[in-house]
Computed example of a mutant assay.
Amino acid sequence: MTALGILYPGHFAEDDYPRIEQLLGSDIRVELIHTGIDDDAYRLPAPHSTNREERLARSVEGLRLSGAEAVVWASTGGSFTLGWEGAHEQVRALALASGMPASSTSFGFVHALGEVGARRVAVGATYPEDVAALFADFLRAGGVEVTGVHSAGVTAAAQAAAWGEAELLALAREADRAEADAVVLPDTALHTASHVTTLEEKLGKPVLTANQVTVWEALRLTDRRVNAPGLGALFTREPVVQA
């Protein structure tokens, strides 16, 4: 049994995680700890309010008791808005506080894009344009070529959490570019676990979503690879797009 620790801010799309655990169909346990949130608004510098080191440090105690082997901070905006170096500092502090390998969803996207062999990506962000631009900058700092960024202009996480498959597909299609090897949807407030394969079928390429990537990143930290086609190209044994 491998236990994965996920620190999740607020209560938006946390039910994606038991769904993902079910789709993994293996000896994987996903331990979800809520960190709380001051403000769910998508504006700068509001995402920073979710990532206070003392709050994350308090939250990891529950993960230690659960037997988690690695921890991922599941707030994309609470990571990439710090910039590449700031996000690294955050992860280092989390690893020190937890005593286990640590990462964040933002870094998970960079690693996952490498896994599926995607060099050029299109970004479909719920966030306003200024926040979405910071995510694109983060990917570029990780060596990813961003072909375009589509902003849906959503103003709060609760609004994103109310979206269904139709809205997700519209976002992915608006973002997609012919030259993009993959499409990424970075918001952990979106319910995506049940829709990844449909999105990939409609677009004909890998679609990476935040909660899916978060669990994959935790598995990567524990040196586990699980074949779960129900979670899309990222969880199949062979990448859809070859490097």
Rank of each mutant, 00 (worst) to 15 (best):
M1Q: 11
M1K: 12
T2A: 09
G5N: 08
P9E: 07
G10H: 02
G10S: 04
F12E: 00
F12G: 00
Y17Q: 02
P18L: 07
P18N: 09
P18D: 08
R19Q: 12
Q22T: 11
L23S: 08
I28R: 08
H34R: 14
G36L: 11
I37F: 09
I37D: 07
D38V: 14
A41S: 13
Y42L: 14
R58E: 15
G62P: 10
E69R: 15
V71F: 08
V72E: 05
W73I: 14
T76P: 05
T76R: 04
G77C: 05
G77S: 11
S79N: 10
S79Y: 09
T81L: 07
G83Y: 06
E85Q: 12
G86E: 06
A87C: 13
E89N: 10
V91T: 13
R92C: 07
A93N: 10
L94Q: 02
L96G: 04
L96Y: 06
A97G: 02
S98D: 04
S98K: 01
M100E: 06
M100P: 01
A102V: 07
T105P: 02
T105E: 01
S106F: 02
S106K: 03
F107V: 03
L113A: 05
E115T: 14
R120E: 11
R120V: 15
A125P: 01
T126V: 14
T126D: 11
T126C: 13
P128W: 00
P128A: 01
V131L: 06
V131Y: 03
A132V: 08
A132M: 06
A136I: 10
A136P: 06
D137Y: 09
D137T: 15
R140I: 11
A141C: 13
A141Q: 14
G148R: 12
G148D: 09
V149G: 01
A152T: 07
G153T: 03
G153Q: 01
A156E: 09
A160I: 05
A161F: 07
A162K: 12
A162D: 13
E167G: 15
L168R: 00
L168G: 03
A170H: 10
A172V: 04
E174L: 13
A175M: 10
A175T: 09
E179Y: 04
A182P: 00
A189R: 02
A189L: 02
H191R: 13
A193W: 00
S194C: 01
H195G: 04
L199F: 04
E201Q: 13
K202V: 14
L203D: 02
G204E: 11
P206N: 09
V207H: 02
N211Q: 05
L219H: 08
D223W: 09
R224M: 04
R224G: 03
R224F: 03
R224T: 03
V226F: 07
A228E: 06
A228V: 05
P229G: 07
L234F: 11
E238Y: 14
V241R: 12
